[in-house]
Write a protein that binds this DNA or RNA. Structure first.
Length: 591
RNA sequence: GGGGUCGUAGUUCAGUAUUUGGUUAGAACGCCGGCCUGUCAAGCCGGAGGUCGCGAGUUCGAGUCUCGUCGGCCCCGCCA
């Protein structure tokens, strides 16, 4: 088949091209048949161009009539200006059209399983099953193109700032800490396994030790954990590490990088330096370690009033070491009884046992618990929350964590429900002063909040063993519009501090030696002070593209059960393949 | 591991609750056929198209009730 050289794409013709003979390629989009006149929208990733067929050329006209949606075709024609009253102002190419002289169908298309249009009419299940068709939709192409631009802006900025792009292995050593590893069996060494990287963390530290003092990589990472709208089993990080730096140096660089990416993709300039918020303050004030500062709502503490309250639940909660905090929602008094019940039910998943509300109507306050409160307490309530007509105040009395989670949920949920903020802005902030360690309920032991290579604040080092929970980390998270989009820290570059951290999280010396011996060794050969950060690239692109799921900016994502609906992976493999790897399958009980 | 929600023409949905479980399961878009010379989500007329996710059960009778199972999405746990 001869393929004449494409002269223009479908999005670039204008009145300046009138009179030119052009060779166009694209997919058949909408067809409009008027009996004696046939219009065709030809589509490619650049745009749409209208092609006109006139009946004078009977053979060509009947060929056009036989086209169906999504056929891929070649058009030879002449660019002509449309009649002035037939301009299409919604189309960049809307003042011209191509008068067809020749049509070649390069490949017919079957009737697609769903219509290829911007407005999503197919369920996500279908879109994933027919992903290559879903990706033809202009809105999907826009997201993929923005992803490309964000990647290029990343490289642009980091290259300009002396960073080296260096690749690290995909087959690496399984690590005990952190997420579940994806394992890869070794054929040469039966019974042994590689792991896919959860992140290139140890490699980038080794690169610092090797003297590559500024490293970056758009690194694919793999974590075998349960999925969410913003979590996929494999995802991409902008992974960065720097030598001879303080937290402030890394943060400043990250601010510059994020600003550059947002500017290059959306044309928006961010104000630097970004706001900084202590981890504990974020939890008390916003009920979240990743607050969305676009939302103009804040939680206020009521514990001081509640501790002597006649409302016994409040008083006993404080006595038992809990807190009572509240959140005012402007205009929230219109919530119905059933909606309030639903909200109380919604926060049950955070272990909240109840939700108290105060509705304000003019000068009146109404509440199921009003009769238990003294006038003084009500005066305090007014003083703290300064409610206006039509507002509602929600209060939760429970442990610090339950209160934060519950009110944090209500804050974002109701801000959305009452449309209390503009979504068009980008509001980044740093979360700092995080604890180095936290207690894991599931494993009933101390674990690294960030990862075990994070450096403690110097003055806290002596506390590592006697009061480990009090130790603060030299770590920082970057939050954008309610999503954690980056996190990093200064690392332990002294082997004794690193050993102490391992000891604090109960990794024995022999285990540390076995799992991380290579790193402990390396730290003893002139390891420079170093630290870094990693951006969740998919989440960042999601926010840039205005999407609410990272699946929409990942070309071929998995479902929430980690299936690929298009190719059906994961699949069983031939017994011979298993045998070669020395692997025997265990039958699941009852199957 | 747990909670919620959804699954009905090719596609998106209505129909399922308290008016009870009842004869031929509807609509829109798409598809097929016809008419139509300035449309651009073209329009008008006609037509085909269904294992109601799958499997049991209750019942004279199940899209509708019960149990199981598979799958999508959202959330908790988990995600150093």
């Amino acid at each position: 088949m001869e393929i004449p050289k494409r002269s223009y794409n479908c999005g670039e013709l204008s009145v300046q091209n009138v009179g030119e003979s052009v060779h166009l390629y694209g997919w058949v989009y909408h067809r409009r048949h008027h009996g004696g006149l046939f219009f065709l929208d030809l589509r490619d990733r650049y745009g749409l161009i209208q092609v006109v067929f006139r009946p004078e050329n009977a053979k060509l006209f009947s060929e056009a009539e036989n086209l169906s949606g999504e056929d891929v075709i070649y058009i030879k024609g002449v660019v002509v200006q449309r009649p002035v009253d037939a301009f299409n102002k919604d189309l960049p190419t809307g003042e011209v059209e191509v008068l067809a002289e020749k049509l070649d169908v390069l490949n017919k298309s079957k009737v697609p399983p769903f219509q290829i249009e911007d407005e999503v009419k197919a369920t996500e299940e279908h879109r994933l099953e027919w992903r290559y068709l879903d990706l033809r939709r202009p809105i999907m192409q826009k997201g993929i193109i923005q992803r490309h631009k964000a990647a290029q802006a990343t490289r642009e900025y980091l290259n300009k700032n002396d960073f080296l792009e260096i690749e690290t292995p995909i087959l690496m050593k399984s690590t005990p800490e952190g997420a579940r590893d994806y394992l890869v069996p070794s054929r040469k060494h039966k019974g042994k396994f590689y792991a896919l990287p959860q992140s290139p963390q140890t490699y980038k530290q080794l690169l610092m030790i090797s003297g590559y003092d500024r490293y970056y990589q758009l690194a694919r990472c793999f974590r075998d954990e349960d999925l969410r709208a913003d979590r996929q089993p494999e995802f991409t990080q902008i992974d960065i590490e720097m030598s001879f730096v303080n937290p402030e140096d890394v943060m400043e660089m990250a601010e510059g990088l994020l600003s550059h990416i947002i500017f290059k993709t959306r044309g928006i300039s961010l104000k630097t330096p970004f706001l900084k918020l202590k981890y504990s303050d974020a939890l008390t004030r916003y009920g979240s370690d990743k607050p969305d500062l676009r939302i103009p709502l804040e939680i206020q503490d009521f514990s001081d009033v509640a501790k002597n309250s006649g409302f016994k639940i409040f008083a006993s909660c404080i006595q038992n070491g809990g807190v009572v905090r509240g959140l005012k929602i402007p205009g929230g008094a219109q919530l119905s009884r059933s909606e309030l019940d639903q909200l109380a039910k919604d926060i049950e998943c955070f272990n909240a046992k109840g939700l108290v509300n105060f509705k304000i109507s003019g000068a009146e306050i109404s509440s199921p618990i009003l009769k238990f409160l003294s006038e003084g307490e009500i005066a305090k309530l007014r003083e703290i929350y300064k409610p206006g007509d039509g507002d509602i105040i929600f209060m939760v009395a429970d442990s610090e964590t339950v209160v934060a989670n519950s009110l944090g949920f209500l804050l974002t949920h109701l801000a959305e429900r009452f449309n209390l903020y503009s979504k068009e802005t980008f509001t980044p902030l740093w979360i700092t002063d995080m604890p180095l360690l936290e207690h894991s309920e599931t494993e009933d032991r101390l674990m690294a909040t960030h990862h075990p290579f994070t450096a403690p604040v110097e003055k806290d080092i002596p506390l590592l063993l006697e009061n480990p929970m009090a130790v603060k980390a030299k770590a920082y998270d970057l939050v954008l519009n309610g999503f954690e989009i980056a996190g990093g820290s200064i690392r332990n570059h002294k082997v004794d501090v690193q050993r102490k951290v391992f000891e604090a999280i109960k990794i024995s010396e022999s285990e540390a030696e076995e799992k991380f011996g290579f790193l402990l060794n390396a730290l003893q050969f002139g390891a420079p002070p170093h630290g870094g950060i990693a951006f969740g690239f998919d989440r960042l692109v999601m926010l840039i593209a205005g999407e609410t799921s990272i699946r929409n900016i990942i070309p071929f994502p998995k479902t929430t059960t980690a299936l690929s609906l298009m190719d059906g992976s994961p699949t069983t493999v031939k017994p011979e393949q298993l045998e070669e790897l020395g692997i025997k399958l265990i039958k699941e009980k009852g199957k």
